[in-house]
Write a protein that binds this DNA or RNA. Sequence first.
DNA 1: ACTGTGGCAGAAATCGATTACAGCCGCAAG
DNA 2: CTTGCGGCTGTAATCGATTTCTGCCACAGT
Lengths: 325, 325
Amino acid sequence: MTRIKDVAALAGVSTATVSRVLNDKTVSPDLAAAVRRAVTELGYTPNRTARSLRRQHSELIALVLPDIENPFFTSLARGVEDVARTAGLSVVLCNTDEDVETQEHYLRIADDENMAGVIVAPAGPSGFLARLTERHRAVVVVDRAVADDVDQVLFDNEDLGRRATQALLDRGHRRIACVTGPRETPTAEARADGWRAALTAAGLPAPDDLLVHANYRVDGGEAAMTRLLAAAEPPDAVLATNNLVGVGALRMLSAERGPRAQLGIIGDLPFATSHIDDTFLLRLHPREMGLTAARLLVSRIRGEAGPAQRVVQPSRPVLLGASPS
Amino acid sequence: MTRIKDVAALAGVSTATVSRVLNDKTVSPDLAAAVRRAVTELGYTPNRTARSLRRQHSELIALVLPDIENPFFTSLARGVEDVARTAGLSVVLCNTDEDVETQEHYLRIADDENMAGVIVAPAGPSGFLARLTERHRAVVVVDRAVADDVDQVLFDNEDLGRRATQALLDRGHRRIACVTGPRETPTAEARADGWRAALTAAGLPAPDDLLVHANYRVDGGEAAMTRLLAAAEPPDAVLATNNLVGVGALRMLSAERGPRAQLGIIGDLPFATSHIDDTFLLRLHPREMGLTAARLLVSRIRGEAGPAQRVVQPSRPVLLGASPS
DNA sequence: ACTGTGGCAGAAATCGATTACAGCCGCAAG
DNA sequence: CTTGCGGCTGTAATCGATTTCTGCCACAGT
């Protein structure tokens, strides 16, 4: 492959000058022109490994996600990718499968590779996060809050739960169940808290048998929905607090010949196979969350950012489905 | 950060010896033990950038995909990720958006980063692919055939089209339409060829008005289905030749009050919101395709592979839905 | 005319690992 | 007793860029 010394030789200058031309340092116009000519003639592009070694950081960022098969996260990844590309960065995708050890593994690799930064949707607590920030690495946390002092881009999850529930109340439903994620999952708990708050504010009870903790996947939604519909006194509306659970719930409803229930979902369903006009969708915007996170990361990499900040990703109150009666 | 010289100093040996211990070269047991002790005491892990520079290849592989939001490709990515992880490699995700220039951009980066290898689902022809193979880089092509002499993991697309169509014939349908991808897209054409072949073999006509070239996305499926159902003589069955088009078609059918049609889909619908018991799914297995491709790439990286080979990814003939009458 | 300053280019150090090369030691064979 | 070989180890070269340091030159100020 052509190296910088080849370019230097062809242009009749030193490698230092070639490097300066390529990095926009001051070089006299005539030499610069000669270098550029040599660069295009040889089709030279700098070896990024060597550059990274010297600069002490690469042009890669790690995107550490718990589940790349969830459309929420792929859409987020898409947003990150778009910003990274225009900033000259490439994205290393790391799938943790919600496993903390895998997460630590990838964060350590990001460190060993001298990556420019890390965007992580954390699966549980991470000691490595603190180590990265201590060493002034650019880190941005998305979707799930952590205690560490790092940039974070989050939804106001309790508010989401409250607003989605309120939408169902507005339609006249009174017995509203909530299917949320596992206990100890802060996001799931906060959204359930919002559900409870909305019911309480409306002077309604929020009994425990209307709150189901499912796994946050399609089968969890199916199981939860089955259980709710089989109850002695089934709900007349159900809030699914994430997209996959919503998919499972919808799938159950579409088969069920028994009691019907109005459904509200926090999240989006880009691959719904049925018309979902009678479902409330409180759309999140994972792609925009990815854009926001990546922009934050880029400015931190460039050293333009101040103290760590928490950004609440706005979720425009787009409520699809039948309007309130 | 701790460097190899710190470990060497603590263990009282040279850096060469430390390197040898870490890379399983011959070192006397006592020194090796001392080195290992020092490594764990300092929590040392080698700087991968420096290693890559010296070794002339990194521990990264590029996965170049046309659309990371398509569940087919995320599932494929998942498979690649799994194999890569156990082989000590990390995956750089590159989204080309079906754009050839973006694809070239990423392939060049993979080269400049000295990545260990590349897995690519090509968006159109790529000159860079040839350059990579010339320079003995490990390259595996997935899902879409190219003329280059590289390893490829592909489906037998015409056979897929034929089998899916046959399944619909077996159910007694005679007027079977086909919604496929854009013209000039080899995969889409091949599957349509299979559809035509199956009809012809059954002694049926395959008229042009039953073949719709849509874009290979959800809205393409919706538009095509709308058009087919509005026809003077609508089909009694429709073959959707990819997953997203299938989603669009199903969505249309679920709303349509007009003529019904049996649907067959090549691909899988992991996020279907309706029960699709009355739909034929010819499931592909993108995750396994990813596994296969990544294993092939790993063996090529290790220099264990011979001449370039084409692997036909088996798609087990799992036809869901109502059995033939 | 002399000194100071700033712009620019080249030589060489540097990043942190791996590895070619050379040297040392001990043992076996002649 | 000498030679040769094999097994280990350390020294130093190496990967390919960036960046510090040094020196040259031209121009301005006194």
